[in-house]
């Protein structure tokens, strides 16, 4: 039954395309990336217009202080974090422990992760890439990097290493294409928003209500 539908559809499509189509009218190669260098100045300028806040750390120590200050300022009691080398580079686990934040260990996560994170204050992640042209955080799911971490808790802190800055989306897609795609790759530009009621713009519909980015200038 299922292959019957498939065969019928593909059969019709083959017949429809058999005669050949006129050649496309323009080259289909992607656009060259925009000019300029990918740096924190450009990235932060766009990012902060979209809702998230940004802070640049020049050393691992500064990054730890930034994270600790954020935890204190936002009354963070519980957190969940990704298993990611950039988090290790700033010993994020130690900072959380020192601040007496209860961190849910991966093995403590329930069978259904998202409901388990509903009451958690903060998710800490690092990015695969960050895009300067659009202020985007590119998050890649993997073992130890749950999709729910940057999505379900009320706050999200993302660490962005300087070496992960790229110019724009076409550059990122080209880079991503060199390896197998992760099960989920999320390119997030700003804080969730809607205009569905009378086109009035409202931020914080789903997902975290606030996003804070710490730039790692040495990494």
């Amino acid at each position: 039954m299922k292959t019957r539908a498939k065969n019928a559809i593909l059969g019709r499509l083959r017949a429809a395309t058999a005669a050949g189509f006129p050649r496309p009218s323009a080259p289909t190669i992607p656009r060259k990336p925009g000019g300029g260098v990918a740096d924190f100045e450009r990235f932060a300028a766009v990012l902060t217009t979209l809702g998230p806040t940004f802070e640049l750390a020049r050393t691992p120590e500064e990054a730890r202080q930034a994270l600790a200050a954020y935890l204190a300022a936002n009354d963070v009691k519980t957190a969940v974090r990704w298993d990611h080398p950039d988090l290790e580079a700033v010993s994020a686990a130690d900072v959380l422990a020192e601040a007496k934040v209860a961190v849910i260990a991966p093995e403590e996560l329930p069978e259904r992760v998202c409901p388990g994170l509903a009451a958690v204050d903060l998710g800490v992640t690092a990015v695969a890439y960050a895009l300067c042209a659009t202020g985007s955080l590119v998050l890649a799911a993997a073992p130890g990097r749950e999709r729910g971490t940057p999505l379900v808790p009320r706050l999200h802190v993302a660490l962005v290493a300087k070496s992960r800055l790229l110019l724009d989306l076409p550059t990122m897609l080209e880079r991503v294409g060199q390896d197998p795609m992760p099960s989920a790759l999320n390119c997030v530009s700003g804080v969730s928003s809607t205009g569905d009621i009378e086109f009035v713009y409202v931020r914080g519909v789903h997902g975290p209500l606030a996003v804070h980015v710490i730039g790692l200038d040495w990494l």
Binding site: L169, S183, A184, N186, V188, S192, G207
Partner: peptide, 21 residues
């Protein structure tokens, strides 16, 4: 917009070792 807030690329189901998805 240049990009919407969420641009998601979903490829298949959760992989070996992943706890959600």
């Amino acid at each position: 917009q240049t990009l919407p807030v969420h641009l998601s690329f979903f490829t298949g189901a959760r992989r070996e070792g992943e706890r959600d998805g």
